[in-house]
Design a protein around this nucleic acid. Structure first.
Lengths: 224, 224
DNA sequence: ACCTGAACACCGTTCAAGT
DNA sequence: ACCTGAACACCGTTCAAGT
């Protein structure tokens, strides 16, 4: 079992998932692999290379099963998957937004989405805008949740209303006027994170209508 | 002119804006302030405290002039301001999503937005969802642009179509099939970043309709 | 070709003095 | 009360050997 890049990234992810990004150093990674730290440099371009590898791994985890089916559901499922990575790997997932790497698996998803939207009657330009918007929303939402609720909490995802308010209180500047505290509560003290995300997703998807009529389909029914 | 927190954060932002986050260390910060590095620890809680201060500063920069006017324009302007910070401080802005700090100025914006939406006939819950969605979109989009185009390029914001394609090619895995390269181009090779962002914003805002009829206004005209 | 370990430069932070 | 500087622990990386 010779050392290779994949094994290095695996070990790195194990460390990061358990102890956070700061705990990842080359010496630690060496002992985790049972190898001299310097041996790693043969397979990966230093610590930076390891972080690149982690970012790539995170994007690859955004894989979604259904790539056919109605376009709206396809986009919805992809955006959910985007957020899910942040919950699954709260320490490593932010790397997706720090390093520019595009794995093939992501391009395959994008390709399927572009085709689905084009088939539904969206112009090429609008299709791109829609996917970019959903991607931004997905990663932005996932990342914002992480920084709001703190890393360990978001993993368990079960904070009581009281605990959340205390957490919020600590982040608020001392001596905020009541009406601003109310605003903070309304915005950040979310009781059901899943439902809150879904309603944001609905907001985005329900407003979408093809520009020119689709090749052949009945009228969509979303705006009740 | 005694040393204080505000002066420390100012100096830190100067360094970070010019040379990036990695260039920010306590010794460097000391010389920038003309002070022994250890003097800084009196006013700020170590390097971490400096980063917290920078995150706070970034959020404070998301100030928007108009806080009245129609709700749609108010939200639009705020989301634009969110993205603008990432272009103004490409190195420091990502800290907004790494540390949980909420300055009063942000809460004031949120409060005004909540009221505007409530007055327009949106329920409290839906108003929160809308603002959260727009915030996620704004920061997600800004951050994604940064990682896509690279930090210095996003500042200048003038990349030729050719330069952008080369940049994209470097990020793509070697030997991607043509149809996937096409997908990457459609999604990432944006010729007009401003226009692309605006169309995402339109996507989000145009779909919004109050739940119960507004207190008294004529019908909105957005979906032409 | 691949792994090893000593060594170097750098950085955050503690602590005991200074004024 | 505030600033100073020596010192320590830690970490990424280079380099000359090893097998």
């Amino acid at each position: 079992m010779p050392l290779n890049k994949s094994r290095v990234i695996n070990a790195a992810l194990t460390i990061v998932d358990r102890e956070g990004l700061d705990a990842l150093n080359m010496r630690r990674l060496g002992t985790e692999l049972g190898v001299d730290p310097m041996a790693i440099y043969r397979h990966v371009d230093g610590r930076d290379g390891v972080l690149d590898g982690l970012a790539q791994r995170m994007w690859e985890e955004v894989n979604v099963a259904i790539e056919d089916g109605p376009w709206r559901e396809q986009l919805r499922e992809f955006t959910r998957a985007l957020r899910r990575v942040f919950h699954a790997h709260p320490y490593a997932a932010p790397l997706m937004l720090q390093r520019f790497v595009i794995p093939v698996s992501l391009l395959e998803s994008v390709h399927a989405q572009l085709r689905a939207l084009r088939d539904a009657g969206f112009s090429e330009e609008r299709a791109g805008a829609i996917i970019r918007t959903l991607q931004s929303f997905g990663v932005g939402y996932g990342l914002a949740e992480l920084t709001c609720f703190g890393i360990p909490e978001v993993g368990g995802a079960d904070l009581s209303q009281a605990e959340m308010l205390v957490l919020l209180g600590q982040a608020l500047p001392p001596g905020v006027p009541p009406h601003l505290a109310d605003a903070a509560i309304a915005l950040y003290a979310v009781t059901n994170p899943e439902a809150a995300f879904e309603s944001g997703l609905d907001l985005l998807l329900d407003g979408l209508r093809p520009d020119h009529g689709p090749p052949g389909s009945s009228a969509p029914a979303a705006q009740s």
